[in-house]
Design a protein around this nucleic acid. Structure first.
Lengths: 109, 109
DNA sequence: GCAATAAAATCTATTTTGTAGAGAAAATTG
DNA sequence: CAATTTTCTCTACAAAATAGATTTTATTGC
């Protein structure tokens, strides 16, 4: 079937949203805040690595910052392939959700 | 993190859409047609089984039909838990996609 | 220069999901 | 009751997600 996995999608979106600040820690933070779910490190890191390997993300080491301590940040950026993958998953979701609003679902409860 | 997997979500949606005709074969057909992707049997069957085990779907054997041949159909139906899971995944997706239209993405290509 | 501390990345092991397609089971028809 | 058809079920495998511990690297104050 070969669509983005759930975590992959959400991680890509977080990277997009964070722009130049898209490294592991804020990505995790954004995911926790926006999804309302717990995200452990591995659940962020593994998709990031995979997505880079697949060419949907590209990373580079950030400059040392004036803040205290820490390894150099690894900053992620969407590639065109990444953007395309997001567009595709969105399209599929839209087709499958066609005519199903949350309201419709809630009536079933 | 614990959200519906992609296939799980799409299978649930197919079941909802098909109503009383929600058994493996039309579910697969609907998925192929609506997603534009290939779905082999295992990719439909495995999520169906798992979703039932988790209580998001409930199945029952259909009546023998006037059509030719075949084992009795196993008809699937969303449970309340299934509906809730769909509502939840939708909510999360919405939050994460907030302000990102396909148009915005396409400009990045 | 060096110890303490902090920020961040990376790793390992495991579980859960998804993929692929072969093959078995049950129903109908001639 | 054999042939055919429809449908389900199974097995083996690959990929993705989870969990949290550990390591690495940088800064600051001594």
């Amino acid at each position: 079937m070969n669509l983005l996995g759930r975590a992959e999608e959400l991680v890509l979106l977080a990277v997009w949203k964070l722009g130049d600040d898209a490294y592991c820690v804020p990505i995790k933070k954004h995911l926790v805040k926006t999804t309302g779910k717990d995200w452990v490190f591995g659940a962020v890191y593994a998709p990031l690595e995979r997505l880079e390997k697949k060419g949907l993300l590209q990373s580079s080491l950030g400059d040392p910052t004036p803040e205290r301590g820490g390894k150099r940040k690894r900053i992620y950026k969407l590639t065109k392939a990444g953007v395309k993958a997001l567009i595709e998953v969105k399209k599929v979701e839209k087709a499958m959700w066609d005519n199903i609003s949350e309201g419709v679902l809630e009536k079933l409860l």
